[in-house]
Design a protein around this nucleic acid. Structure first.
Ligand SMILES: [Mn+2]
Ligand SMILES: [Mn+2]
Ligand SMILES: [Zn+2]
Ligand SMILES: [Zn+2]
Lengths: 156, 156
DNA sequence: TCGATATTGATACCAAGTATCAGTAAGTGA
DNA sequence: TCACTTACTGATACTTGGTATCAATATCGA
C-alpha cells in the first residue's frame, strides 16, 4: 500500500471525557461509563448496542452523551441505509469511511485525490458546495478470509 | 458548465408503473396512484409525505410500493442523517447526489473523475471494493437567491 | 366470466429516539 | 468541609418511521 496520498494515521490520543469537559459538561459517572466503554470498543457501534452494554446507565443518558460527542466532533455518525446509524471514534480530521457489507466493520480513510476532485467539481455543480460525504462499500479482509475458508471446505 | 465529464442527462422516459410490471407485479389502482403521484413530484420526497398526499392509499401499501421501486432501481433511497430517508426517481444509471442543506432539494450528477478515483483507490483500500456512495452538500441556487434577497432587505 | 392468487389496508406491533420532570450528583465558593 | 446552585440522571411516556398479520378484495390469465 502506497501511503503518499492515502492516510489512515490515527492522531495521538483520543480522550472522549476531555472532549465533553472541553464543552463545559460535567464529568459524571454515567458519562464516564459511556466514554470508557466507547474507548474500549475497537469497532463502530450503535446506540442500542451501548445501551445493552451499559445496563447501569439510562437509555436517555446514553443517547444524550453520544449526541454531545458527535457535536464535539469526537464521534462520527454514519448513516446506515436500513438500520440505526453507527458511531465510531473520529481519529482523522476530515475523512471518509469504508463499510464492510458483510460484517459491518467501519474503517476510516483520507485520500488527497478525493479532496482534489471535490474542488474540481465546484465549477460544475449548481450552487455552493459546503461539504461532502463518501462511503466505500467493501468486503473486508477478514470476511474475504472467512469466505475463502468456507469455499475451500465446500470444494474439498 | 462544461459537459464533457459532468452528466445530468435524464434518460428518455421514466415509467414507474412499467418498472413494477417488469417485476411481475400487478398494475393495481393503489400502485398506480402511488407511481402517478411520484412522477408528478419534481423533488425528492419522504414516504410519510407520500402517505399524506395519498390519504386514499394505505400506509403499508405506500411503503411496500416504494420498496418495490427501490428494488427495481427506479427510485434512489438517500439516507438522511437526522430523519427519514428521501426518495427520488433514478434518472441516471450510476450517479451521486447533491443535497441542499437549506431546503433539502436533491439533485443527481455523474462525473467520470469520481469513478476514476474509485478505481485508483482499489489498490489502497484494504478489502474488495464492491461499491461506493457520495453526496455533495450544497446551498442550491434558489436558496442562494433567497438568502441574497433577505440580506439586501436587511441591509437596505 | 371464473377462480386462483396477488394485493390491500386496518390493526397491532416494533425499533429508534426524544420530551418531561422529580430526584440526585457535581462543582463552586465561603 | 459544607451548603448551595445548577447540571445531570433516568423512569416514564410519547413520537416517528416502518413492518407483520390477516380477512376482505381486486387483478388477470384461462
Ligand atoms: Mn469516522
Ligand atoms: Mn438519485
Ligand atoms: Zn467484513
Ligand atoms: Zn436549497
Amino acid at each position: 500500500m502506497t501511503s503518499s496520498t492515502l492516510s489512515t494515521t490515527r492522531s495521538a490520543e483520543v480522550n472522549l471525557g476531555n472532549a465533553l469537559e472541553d464543552r463545559g459538561l460535567r464529568r459524571t459517572t454515567a458519562r464516564t461509563a459511556v466514554t470508557d466503554r466507547i474507548e474500549g470498543l475497537s469497532d463502530a457501534f450503535t446506540a442500542e448496542q451501548l445501551c445493552r452494554d451499559l445496563p447501569g446507565v439510562g437509555r436517555a443518558t446514553v443517547y444524550r452523551t453520544i449526541r454531545h460527542l458527535v457535536d464535539a466532533g469526537a464521534l462520527c455518525k454514519l448513516p446506515i441505509l436500513d438500520g440505526a446509524p453507527m458511531y465510531s471514534i473520529a481519529r482523522i480530521e476530515h475523512h471518509h469511511h469504508t463499510v464492510c457489507s458483510r460484517c459491518g466493520a467501519v474503517g476510516e480513510f483520507r485520500h488527497s485525490t478525493v479532496e482534489r476532485v471535490m474542488r474540481s467539481l465546484a465549477n460544475e455543480i449548481d450552487g455552493d458546495i459546503i461539504g461532502h460525504r463518501m462511503e466505500i462499500f467493501i468486503t473486508c479482509n477478514s470476511c474475504l478470509a472467512e469466505l475463502a475458508a468456507g469455499n475451500s471446505t465446500i470444494n474439498g
